[in-house]
Design a binder for these strands. Structure first.
Length: 496
DNA sequence: CTAGGGTTAG
C-alpha cells in the first residue's frame, strides 16, 4: 500500500517532510480504516513543522477531522488560525456542510458572513458548501442569493455548483428551478442526474424520474449505486412496483452493481407501501445482510399505512433493539393502536417509552419570511408575534370546524382531556408556521415549510383544508419528502 | 496549474 511507504518515509530521520507531503497524506487518511494513522500524522506535524503552520497543511487537517465527524475539533483548529485564507475558509465551511443539523447549519451561515467580512472572496468551492447548508435548512432566499452570486461574480456554473443547486432547489420545494439548472448544465455526470432524479422522487414525480433514468442511459451517462437507490425510491413513492423491481433485478447484470443494504431497503419499501406486505417481509428474511433501523422503520410505516398490526409489532421490537431512544418509532406504533381504539396497548407503548427514558422529540418547523428564517417549536410562544399567531390559529380552527373538520385526537399520544388534545394538535409546529405565514406574507406566493418530523395524520387532513379555505398553496418538507397542498388535495395522494 | 467542493432507502 502506498500508505505504508509514506509512513516509512516519515519515520526516516534523514527525510524531513515538508508542507507538501502532509496534505496528500491527510487526504489518504480521510477514509475508513486510517483514522489512527491520520492522528499519528497530526502529532508528526507538531514535531517536524515550526508554527505558524502552512495553510495548505491546516486545510487538510481540518478536512481530515471533519470527515470523521469531528466538527468541533476542526472548528477548534480553525479558530487557532489567525488569518484564514480561502483554502482554510473553504475547509471549515465544507466541514459544516457535511453536517445536517439545523443549529450547525445556522452557525455555518454566520461563519460565511464572517468570511465575507474578512474580505476573502468566495470561489466555487465556497459556494458549493454554502448552497449545501442552505439546502439542509431549506433557506431558499439565501440559496438563491448564492446562485445569483455565481452569475454576478463570473464564477463557473460547473457540475459541482450545478449539482448543489439542483439539490438546493429540489430540497426547497422548487423542482422546476432544479430542472432549469439541470437543463443548463453542459456536461452532466452521474451525480447531476442522481440529484435531479432524487429531486423528482421527493416531489412524487415517479414517472418523470424513471424517464430521466432512461434518458441518462440514452445519453451514455453511467448509473451508479446511488442512481439505483434514487430511482427505486421514486418508484416506491408512487407505487411503480414493477418498474422498481425491474431496476433491482437489472442492477447486477446490466450495470454490474452489487445490491447494498439501501437497495434492499428500497425494495422492502416498494412492497410495503404498495400493501404487498408478505413480499416485504419475505424480502427482509431473504436478504443477505442484517436489516437496519431504517428498514424496520419503513416496515413500521407500511404497517401504519395498511393497518397491519402484527408487522408493526415485530418492527418495533427490532427498532427498540437497534435504537431504543428514537421516540418516533414508539409514536408510530402507538398511533396504529389508537386508530383502532386499543387504548391498553397505547398505554403499554407509553410505558415502554418511559422505561427506556425516551421523550417525544418536539416537532419543529422552519419558514422563511422576507428573507429571514423563523423557527417554531410545537406549542411555543416565544415568537415576537406570538399573540397574533395564536389569534390566527383560533380563526383557522374555527374555519376548519365550519368546514366539518374534526381533529383526529386519536393520534395524540398523551392521556389528556379531549379539549386539550385538540389544542395539542392545533399547536403543532407547522400549524404555527402556517398561521404566521398567513399573517406575515401578503402575497399569493406558496407557503414553504421545513419540518423535522413526519407530518401527522391530523395535520395532513387540516393542511389540505387550509390550502382550500385560504386559497393558498402550502408546500411542506417532511423528514423524507414533500407535500404540495393545493385546493384541498396533497401531491402525495395520501400515500406517505 | 494548485488545497477545499456536488448525489444516497425512511
Amino acid at each position: 500500500m502506498a500508505f505504508s511507504l509514506y509512513s516509512h518515509i516519515l519515520t526516516h530521520k534523514s527525510l524531513k517532510p515538508n508542507n507538501f507531503t502532509y496534505p496528500s497524506l491527510f487526504k489518504a487518511c480521510g477514509s475508513h480504516p486510517w483514522f489512527d494513522h491520520g492522528r499519528a500524522l497530526h502529532t508528526h506535524v507538531f514535531k517536524f513543522l515550526e508554527p505558524p503552520y502552512d495553510h495548505f497543511v491546516q486545510a487538510s487537517l481540518l478536512n481530515f477531522y471533519s470527515r470523521y465527524g469531528k466538527l468541533s475539533l476542526s472548528r477548534y483548529l480553525f479558530n487557532q488560525i489567525c488569518k484564514p485564507d480561502l483554502a482554510t475558509w473553504n475547509s471549515i465551511l465544507a466541514a459544516y456542510a457535511r453536517n445536517t443539523s439545523i443549529d450547525l447549519s445556522v452557525d455555518a451561515l454566520f461563519l460565511f458572513n464572517e468570511m465575507q467580512n474578512s474580505l476573502i472572496r468566495p470561489n466555487e468551492v465556497t459556494i458549493v458548501a454554502l448552497i449545501g447548508v442552505c439546502a439542509d435548512l431549506g433557506a431558499l432566499s439565501q440559496g438563491t442569493w448564492a446562485h445569483a452570486y455565481v452569475l454576478r461574480s463570473n464564477l463557473r456554473l460547473n457540475r459541482f455548483v450545478g449539482t448543489a443547486l439542483i439539490d438546493l432547489y429540489a430540497k426547497c420545494g422548487c423542482v422546476d428551478l432544479a430542472n432549469q439548472v439541470f437543463d443548463q448544465l453542459p456536461h452532466k455526470d452521474t451525480l447531476c442526474y442522481n440529484a435531479m432524479i432524487r429531486g423528482l422522487a421527493i416531489h412524487g414525480h415517479g414517472r418523470k424520474a424513471v424517464d430521466l433514468f432512461d434518458k441518462m442511459r440514452w445519453e451514455g451517462v453511467r448509473p451508479d449505486d446511488v442512481t439505483l437507490v434514487v430511482v427505486m425510491c421514486a418508484c416506491a413513492h408512487v407505487g411503480l412496483v414493477e418498474e422498481g423491481l425491474k431496476c433491482f433485478e437489472s442492477m447486477k447484470e446490466v450495470y454490474g452493481i452489487e445490491p447494498k443494504l439501501e437497495h434492499y431497503g428500497c425494495l422492502v419499501d416498494l412492497f410495503g407501501r404498495a400493501g404487498r406486505v408478505r413480499e416485504a417481509e419475505e424480502m427482509v428474511r431473504m436478504m443477505p445482510m442484517k436489516p437496519n433501523a431504517v428498514l424496520w422503520r419503513s416496515l413500521l410505516g407500511a404497517s401504519r399505512l395498511h393497518g397491519n398490526l402484527e408487522l408493526g409489532e415485530v418492527a418495533l421490537k427490532h427498532l427498540i433493539q437497534l435504537e431504543p431512544e428514537t421516540s418516533g418509532n414508539y409514536v408510530l406504533l402507538s398511533n396504529i393502536y389508537a386508530s383502532i381504539n386499543r387504548w391498553d396497548d397505547v398505554s403499554r407503548v407509553r410505558k415502554l417509552m418511559k422505561d427506556h427514558g425516551v421523550d417525544k422529540t418536539p416537532g419543529c418547523s422552519l419558514i422563511e419570511i422576507g428573507g429571514a428564517m423563523h423557527e417554531f417549536i410545537m406549542g411555543d410562544k416565544t415568537h415576537p408575534h406570538s399573540k397574533e399567531i395564536y389569534l390566527k390559529l383560533e380563526e383557522i380552527s374555527r374555519r376548519l370546524h365550519a368546514h366539518g373538520h374534526r381533529p383526529r385526537t386519536k393520534e395524540v399520544l398523551f392521556d389528556i382531556e379531549e379539549e386539550e388534545k385538540e389544542d395539542a394538535l392545533s399547536y403543532h409546529s407547522e400549524r404555527l408556521a402556517i398561521a404566521f405565514a398567513l399573517i406575515a406574507s401578503d402575497s399569493n406566493a406558496p407557503i414553504r415549510i421545513i419540518k423535522n418530523l413526519r407530518v401527522c395524520g391530523d395535520c395532513h387532513v387540516s393542511t389540505k383544508l387550509i390550502s382550500m379555505i385560504y386559497d393558498r398553496e402550502i408546500v411542506v418538507r417532511d423528514r423524507n419528502r414533500f407535500h404540495h397542498f393545493r385546493n384541498g388535495t396533497c401531491s402525495c395522494l395520501d400515500y406517505w
